[in-house]
Write a protein that binds this DNA or RNA. Structure first.
Length: 271
DNA sequence: ACGAAGCCCTGCAAGC
DNA sequence: TGCTTGCAGGGCTTCG
């Protein structure tokens, strides 16, 4: 389940291998992802050179002179660097072949991801233009969260998971950040004080930065990596630990569903 | 305008 | 052992 840290790890991993390299071929084995991968990609990406690799939220943006390739990994997607000697697996849907033989291979068993070839200015694109700030940027702070949450009755957990409010806070990290911050996930977003949003903003930054740092350690061998980012399960304090003991107070953690998502918290430590 | 639910898809685990 | 069922999840889309 790639969240922002995994996407950033992927970006840094592929960057040195494909930046300023020319694409010579695109192979689509399975076009039906979240949205269809269009044949235009086969016709127009070859011949182009990757001039930048950016990230916005969980979207990866591969710039070329002609257009931008927008990639989302959904919840089961991954990008790996490989070569033509490695046969594609069952869920390896797209290959981007580079001059000199390297292949950027897109794998996505559940096909929740997407790969779109976008020729209009990318910042205007419908998928990007209404996104909230990057959580690790200075724009994301207590004042911002406090301001946009006034009069909002929605629970704070789905509130911070809404990409229009802040990008890249998925279910795992939302659970973790709220635990760190001592905030009950069910609390109405509009009722939290500026001070508590300060704590929450810091915890979100800390949890995400921590995960980026851990992801960074598995970067070195990106070309040969199994595609499974170390995932740092041992660092998770609440996610996946429903009915186990709270690591702060020892009482049993409670598991509920909030906005269709599994939510784990401590009724004693999170108010 | 807001918030909740629906939907896309496959792998895995549990139950029979 | 082999089926069926339920669940997980990001995030766009639809509905109330």
């Amino acid at each position: 389940m790639p969240e922002l840290p995994e996407v950033e790890t992927t970006r840094r991993g592929i960057l040195p291998h494909i930046l300023n390299r020319q694409v010579i071929q695109v192979i689509i084995r399975q076009p039906s992802l979240r949205w269809p991968v269009t044949p235009e990609l086969i016709d127009e990406l070859p011949g182009q050179t990757i001039s930048a690799i950016k990230r916005r939220g969980k979207y990866l943006l591969l710039d070329t002179k002609l257009a931008t390739l927008l990639i989302h990994l959904g919840m089961s997607g991954s990008l790996r660097l490989t070569n033509s000697e490695t046969p594609p697996g069952k869920h390896d849907h797209v290959d981007i072949v580079f001059e000199g033989g390297g292949i950027l291979r897109y794998c996505d068993p559940r096909r929740f991801g997407c790969m779109l070839w976008i020729k209009t200015p990318i910042e205007n694109h419908l998928l990007l233009h209404s996104l909230g700030p990057e959580p690790l940027s200075e724009d994301f702070d207590a004042e911002y969260l406090h301001r946009i949450s006034r009069n909002r009755k929605q629970a704070v957990k789905p509130f911070i998971m809404n990409s229009g409010n802040v990008v890249g806070v998925g279910n795992i990290y939302a659970n973790e950040a709220l635990f760190q911050a001592g905030i009950n996930p069910k609390r109405a977003a509009g009722n939290l004080s500026l001070a508590r949003y300060g704590v929450l903003a810091d915890c979100i930054k800390q949890v995400l930065q921590n995960a980026v740092d851990v992801g960074g350690t598995s970067l070195r061998d990106f070309t040969n990596s199994s595609g499974e980012p170390g995932y740092f399960k041992q660092l998770l304090q609440v996610y996946g630990r429903g009915c186990l003991d709270c690591l702060k107070c020892g009482r049993l953690l409670k598991e509920i569903r909030l906005g269709q998502r599994s939510t784990v918290y401590c009724t004693h430590c999170q108010k």
